Simulated scan of single mutants.
Amino acid sequence: MSNHGGDSKSGGGGGTLSEVYQNSKRLLIKTRDGLERLEKMFESTSSSDLSDSLNRDICQIISLCSNMDSLWRSIPAKSQRDLWKRKVEQVAEEADSLKGSLDKYLSRNQRRVQEAREREELLGRVNGDGSHVLRIFDEEAQAMQSVRNSSTMLEEAYSTGVAILSKYSEQRDHLKRAQRKALDVLNTLGLSNSVLRLIERRNRVDKWIKYAGMIVTIIILIYVWRWTR
């Protein structure tokens, strides 16, 4: 076994460390290209064959990494050992990344196959009893449209109620300001207490009218909501 750089040889006759490393790099390039082709393929026998081939290549790269791991450890020079250690680790990381990409593709492909099978089963049921299925779909569509219409009506009724309540609030503020002004004027003129009590009673009546209007508005909103359910 040689002690220079990448000339360490595998005990199993697999070549020097440099040769094994070059083989692993060629396989990495081949696997990356194969994955790119695989992503562009539709489901077919050729794509299945290619995925199997890529899986074998990745397994071979991992095996080469195991072989290189034993080879770089036999290099006497520490600087060379550290250099080859980093190289082998990079190859192993790329192999893991390619394995992850292939697994993701196979998972997506399996999901597509399952979805296609479910569509075929659904179409088979439709062809077997088309009118029944179509009637169910039509009823569901009508129900969804009814829900949307009810939701729209409820939103419009709610907006109307909010606007009415806001208007009542504005009117209440106006009445309060008018009351204060009237009281100031009456106090200035020195009107009698009976007149002031009359004004206060009128204000209470206006307040009850306002509350009654709010209650009626709320009852209308509740009725509209229950009617649209």
Rank of each mutant, 00 (worst) to 15 (best):
S166T: 15
S166V: 03
S166C: 00
S166G: 15
S166L: 00
S166Q: 06
S166W: 00
K167V: 02
K167N: 12
K167A: 09
K167M: 07
K167D: 08
K167Y: 01
Y168Q: 10
Y168W: 03
S169R: 14
S169T: 15
E170I: 08
E170M: 07
E170Y: 04
E170K: 15
E170N: 10
E170F: 08
Q171I: 03
Q171V: 05
Q171S: 10
R172I: 08
R172K: 07
R172D: 12
D173P: 00
D173K: 15
D173T: 15
D173A: 11
D173C: 05
D173Q: 15
D173F: 10
H174M: 06
H174V: 02
H174N: 12
H174C: 02
L175T: 09
L175A: 14
L175W: 01
K176R: 11
R177N: 12
R177T: 05
A178W: 02
A178T: 03
Q179H: 13
Q179S: 15
Q179N: 13
R180V: 01
R180I: 01
R180Y: 02
R180H: 07
K181F: 05
K181Q: 12
K181A: 15
K181M: 09
K181S: 14
K181V: 04
A182Y: 03
A182Q: 04
L183Y: 11
L183A: 03
L183F: 10
L183P: 00
L183Q: 05
D184L: 05
D184Y: 05
D184I: 02
V185D: 07
V185Q: 06
V185R: 09
L186K: 05
L186Y: 15
N187M: 04
N187P: 00
T188Q: 12
T188P: 00
L189Q: 13
L189R: 15
G190T: 08
G190R: 12
G190I: 06
G190H: 13
L191W: 11
L191T: 15
L191S: 14
S192A: 09
N193V: 10
N193I: 10
N193H: 11
N193Q: 14
S194L: 08
S194D: 13
S194Q: 12
V195T: 04
V195Y: 01
V195L: 13
V195K: 02
L196Q: 06
L196C: 01
L196S: 02
L196A: 01
R197N: 09
R197T: 14
R197L: 09
L198R: 07
L198N: 07
L198W: 00
I199T: 04
E200A: 06
E200C: 00
E200N: 01
R201Q: 11
R201M: 08
R201V: 07
R201W: 03
R201C: 08
R202L: 09
R202F: 06
N203P: 03
N203G: 15
N203D: 10
N203Q: 12
R204S: 04
R204L: 10
V205E: 09
V205C: 03
V205R: 08
V205W: 05
V205Y: 07
V205Q: 10
V205G: 01
D206T: 05
D206Q: 13
D206I: 08
K207R: 13
K207Q: 11
K207S: 14
W208D: 04
W208R: 07
W208V: 08
W208C: 06
I209K: 03
I209E: 03
I209D: 08
I209Y: 01
